[in-house]
Amino acid sequence: MVEPLTKTKETGQVYARPPEIEEEIACALKLGIDEILTRAVIRDSRVDGYMSSECMVYLIRRDAKSSTHKLVNELTPLLLKRCETNLYSKVTGFREPTLQEVHEEILGRLVELLVDGGNRADYFEIRFNDAFKCLRCEVCTYYQRHDDVSGSIEDKTDLDGDNDGGNIDDLHCEIDYDKVPSSLTQEDAVYLKQVLSDLTDMERNIFILHKQGGIPINSKFSGVTNLVNLLGISERTVRNHLRNAEAKLAALKEADNE
């Protein structure tokens, strides 16, 4: 019998796995260890016999409660292998050795969640990719905050004064408060990746939230989400951080073109 999840939503309703996952788990419970491992090796979901990561998580967590841990020891590395590929493409923007440490921390936290006996890993049995994305982002934001002392999001130091380090000419031009910027181009993304570790936490977050998330710097209408409200800093400071990030990106592009 497939054990139900216990994690509840804000409303008190218990989370449920998608029916196809429930079905897959029920079938997997009838398989022997060798067959489970053979299926878990398949990485392409279109191939017959492919086992979903959600199902693997269920089997690992179930086995962690047993005394042998045979499946835990053999199935977990296969799940980690799937995650490893994802990590290398998604997690960037840290200098070595921090990058390596971030990768280790993400996988370390994942395995601890799987075997700690609590229900925090329930999310991984519902939509593994989303849950893993959440874990990845959680760890990355933690490291961003602790790795970058100069411009942490908690650092509300205004860049209004002399230390803004950027061109303030356009502060006097008319501000298009509710302007929603267009998404970054592929070229921008390539340069951004290279310059990421040179940006402070604040520069990076403001740049991404504004340029990629479309969150306006400020708004003349109260109640509209904007960076000034979200970050609790002045519009001028937001603009200066943004300008600093753009300047670093432009410098890289220029150097590349020369």
């Binding site: 290398y88 493409s89 990845r136 959680e138 934001t141 993304a189 990746k193 990076r204 991404i208 970050l231």
Partner: peptide, 24 residues
């Protein structure tokens, strides 16, 4: 604050992986 930081990281990871063509 946590949701804001998290959103920035999420957008960044999506952006960089969408445009990631290099062999890992």
């Amino acid at each position: 604050a946590e949701l804001t930081n998290f959103t920035a990281e999420w957008l960044l990871q999506d952006l960089l992986s969408e445009n990631d063509t290099s062999e890992k």
